[in-house]
Design a protein around this nucleic acid. Structure first.
Length: 568
RNA sequence: UGGGGGAUCGUCUAGGGGCAAGACAACAGAUUUUGGAUCUGUGAACCCAGGUUCGAUUCCUGGUCCCCCAGCCA
């Protein structure tokens, strides 16, 4: 069921509801997600997937097909087909037995082309591509009719057969719709229906020498599959009259309705295939699954959950106006999801050695820690505690600023799940002045959960027992671009010049809690006070590697930044 | 200066002749053994000008600005 309250569904669902109520299309809704297998899916595609599959799921009897729009063999291949299938499945959608390919319909498309020729609605043009462009006119001037426009039906049939039989060179001819060269809509100025491409197709091999264009194949594919609502992005809006023309002239039984919506844009990233490919080719990122990329494989590797992405897609809605969604909303959605599900664990990214001078040497206590305070059914675990610990370097300041609640000389903090400690000494490197170790005294009466001490301290910090910790590499990601709208380059500016040079920081020598022992690739954790992390595919049993999915909200950093600004 | 779309808080999205709603973000407070989470609160918008109307963000007219289209790409 739609989770949208009545009266607040998006305009597409409103149309579907209305059509269903009116018993249009026999009272059913049937959508499709129609990617071209020429690249990998990104979060913008997720919006379309969630829309199409979501509508099918929400309305009784609804169905959604996966359909590969594989009409251009020069750009497409099976690797993309497989990765797209994997991504759609991962996102949580099921096309059941309805995975189709436009190439499945090539024979029927060809029959329809012949039908159009016979009706005098299509002709073989022998102008070159350049000439066709010249004849097309401009935005303000009408086009001119091709000299080949008046060929006889017989000649058109004959030439089309030759094209199909592979007897013509690429570019020698093209099949065009005979519509109106003076149309103010350029798409209606005798658009190309078929072109010659003498290259093997990833599914049909060398059986075809001609391939239909999107404008011809798409409406017919929809008709053949019984699609009721054909959802696409705004740039196809002025193709709609052509979509209608093809359906009408081919006299198909099913006449679906094309509805356009605005594609997704996200701050601090790019979503165009061209720009994403550029980032990879030029080595700005490591590949299509680089965790900084908004590709589904990148987000998956980073640790994003399908639930979070689906929730995000619900949040952003569907409308016709151009939009740029704040990436903070995406981040909010993962946090919301992972807060409820991720096991808590302590991990120190930048270790500072702490010695508890009054803690017995060689003693190890096993302390009880809660796995997820949001979900008691996740139980507890035990964490080893001993005389030498690591804490976060950030959690100690020799000269603490105002409102800093963590450790500093003479100050007290609680160690999470353990004791209150007081800093009694600071050991520095004599040459660099760097703090290398902190000496503290622990108060045995303040053991967590003992209830013996009513003492309150302002801060609680995480820690790890030096002797028991595991070492790990942890990758921190920032935005890929340093400006919120890298797509709107100022004049003379290239999006590449807006790349954030510090979008990846790899931190080695991190010390993580024993509980991470044996964690498998893809497993997610909350590192207390820090964020959500996911075991990367580079991780091995010998060398743990984790990605930071997203940091926890950090109100201290805001306070601190505010303080530094005030000091100006 | 052709055609097609669009314009509501900083962002995204609702609403539709009669109090402009929600989410994210921001800010403030409560709470807290995660400066997390949670809770409460605050600030924040109808592109402009006319017209119709008791009343217009909504309807009408005229502007302005933004996006898309001249692939044998999708």
């Amino acid at each position: 069921m739609a989770e949208h309250p009545p009266g607040s569904q998006d305009f597409i669902r409103a149309i579907v509801s209305r059509d269903l109520d009116a018993q249009k299309h026999g009272g059913v809704v049937h959508t499709r997600f129609p990617p071209e297998p020429n690249g990998y899916l990104h979060i913008g595609h997720a919006k379309s997937i969630c829309l199409n599959f979501g509508i099918a799921r929400e309305f009784a009897g609804g169905l959604c097909n996966l359909r590969f729009d594989d009409t251009n063999p020069t750009k497409e291949n099976m690797e993309y087909v497989e990765s797209i299938q994997e991504d759609v499945r991962w996102l949580g959608f099921d096309w059941e037995e309805r995975c189709f390919f436009a190439s499945d319909y090539f024979e029927q498309f060809s029959d329809y082309a012949v039908l159009l020729i016979k009706k005098g609605k299509a002709y073989v043009d022998s102008l070159s591509a350049d000439d066709i462009r010249c004849y097309r006119g401009t935005l303000t001037e009408p086009g001119r009719e091709s000299p080949y426009r008046t060929r006889s039906v017989e000649e058109n049939l004959h030439l089309f057969a030759k094209m199909r039989a592979g007897e013509c060179e690429e570019g020698a001819h093209a099949l065009r719709a005979r519509i109106d060269m003076a149309s103010p809509n350029i798409n209606m100025r005798d658009p190309t229906l078929y072109r010659i491409r003498r290259v093997p197709h990833h599914r049909t091999g060398t059986t075809w020498n001609i391939y239909p264009t999107y404008d011809f194949a798409h409406p017919l594919s929809d008709a053949l599959e019984g699609i009721t609502h054909s959802l696409c992005t705004l740039e196809f809006e002025d193709h709609r009259p052509l979509y209608e023309w093809v359906l009408n002239e081919c006299d198909v039984a099913c006449h679906s309705q094309q509805i356009e919506f605005a594609r997704l844009n996200l701050t601090y990233t790019v979503l165009s295939k061209r720009k994403l490919a550029g980032l990879i080719e030029e080595g700005h990122v490591s590949g299509w699954n680089d965790p900084r990329l908004p590709t589904l494989m990148g987000l998956r590797r980073r640790g994003y959950t399908p639930e979070a992405i689906r929730r995000f897609c619900e949040h952003i809605g569907v409308a016709k106006r151009e939009n740029v969604v704040d990436v903070a909303l995406l981040e909010h959605c993962v946090r919301e999801d992972l807060n409820a599900r991720a096991q808590r664990v302590m991990a120190v990214l930048r270790p500072l050695r702490v010695v508890l001078t009054n803690y017995p040497e060689g003693c190890v206590e096993e302390l009880t820690a809660v796995n997820n305070p949001e979900d008691p059914t996740m139980g507890t675990r035990t964490v080893p505690f001993s005389r030498v610990l690591y804490i976060e370097r950030d959690d100690f300041r020799e000269d603490p600023p105002k409102k800093y609640f963590r450790l500093a000389p003479g100050r007290e903090v609680r160690l999470r799940y353990a004791y209150i400690i007081e800093c009694v000494d600071v050991i520095k490197d004599e040459r660099t002045g760097e703090v290398v170790e902190v000496h503290c005294r622990y108060d045995p009466d303040t053991k967590s959960g003992s209830g013996r001490s009513a003492r309150k301290v302002k801060g609680t910090i995480h820690w790890v027992s030096a002797a028991h910790a595991l070492e790990a590499e942890i990758r921190l990601f920032g935005h890929l671009f340093s400006v919120p709208d890298p797509d709107h380059e100022k004049a003379g500016q290239d999006y590449r010049s807006l790349i954030n040079p510090n979008s990846l920081e790899s931190v080695r020598g991190c010390q993580v809690e024993r509980a991470l022992q044996g964690a498998g690739v893809g497993q997610r954790f909350q590192f207390e006070r820090q964020g959500y992390f996911c075991v990367d595919c580079d991780s091995t049993s010998q060398a743990l590697v984790l990605n930071r999915i997203v940091a926890l909200r950090d109100s201290w950093s805001k306070i601190e930044h505010g303080q530094t600004q005030d000091r100006r």
